[in-house]
Amino acid sequence: MILILSIILILLVFLFGSNRTAQSIVTTMINLGVFFCTLIAIYLGLNSILATIIGCIIISLITLFYQNDFNIKTKTAFLSVLIVILVSLGFTYFIASFSNIQGFPVGQYEIRQSNGYLDTVDINMMFLQIAVILIVLIGSAIDTSLAVSSSLYEVKNHNKDITRKELFLSGISIGRGILSSTINTLFFIFIAEYMSLFLYFSKYYNFSQMINSKEFAQEVITIAIAGIASILAIPITSLICSKKYNKI
């Protein structure tokens, strides 16, 4: 089924897409490769958070500079993605260590000692959970940062004597326009991903068990932090743009 779906996707790209759509499919494949390299690096013993940060930086570099061009718009977007990663990392670390959401909930996965498998690894699962959150948030952070920085570039081009403060404020108002769709995109992907989990909850759990369970906490915290990161990307990108674009 995956093969047929892939073929249809590629056909659709050739039918309706332009060269840049084809290019974005290539970018996505490269990013998938980077994701696997990150996983293998973690398996080989590299610290999960470090490996993921490096992976995220490479993903942003490819998405911004290969798929789009190397110009002032993508440079500012890259800078703000870096800052967003750093800010969210601190926050994520605090919340994740506070809430014990690492690893698997009891009963989720089949690899257990009772099945003859090792259920211990030398890898810190807490760090790995933080890595998961980082991978989720990087996508939406790049999306938001690039949208704000390229729109602000147009604003600056059309009003040459715009002040820094005005540029910053117009960045915020552009961000407001895309805020809702970013949050909704994340929300729907997560609902779909965990639909079977929710069916399971509604069958076997009551409300108080659900909201205190590890599965539920993992999911809600991940989506909420991704949302927080993409909102933070709006003022951060606007601020950097308002400083950088004034020099043009």
């Binding site: 840049r20 759509t21 290019q23 974005s24 499919i25 970018t27 996505t28 990013n31 998938l32 994701f35 996983l39 973690i42 993903i59 998405t63 798929q67 789009n68 690893g103 698997f104 699962m125 790995l128 959970q129 890595a131 998961v132 959150i133 991978i135 989720v136 990087i138 996508g139 939406s140 790049i142 999306d143 690039l146 949208a147 995109t185 994340l186 992907i189 997560f190 991903e193 991940t222 991704a226």
Partner: peptide, 17 residues
């Protein structure tokens, strides 16, 4: 481009552990 990227990363991240 960035949107396809978002769909990819949000879907595969939970696969890591």
């Amino acid at each position: 481009g960035t949107m396809i990227n978002v769909v990819l990363l949000t879907n595969i991240a939970a696969f890591m552990p």
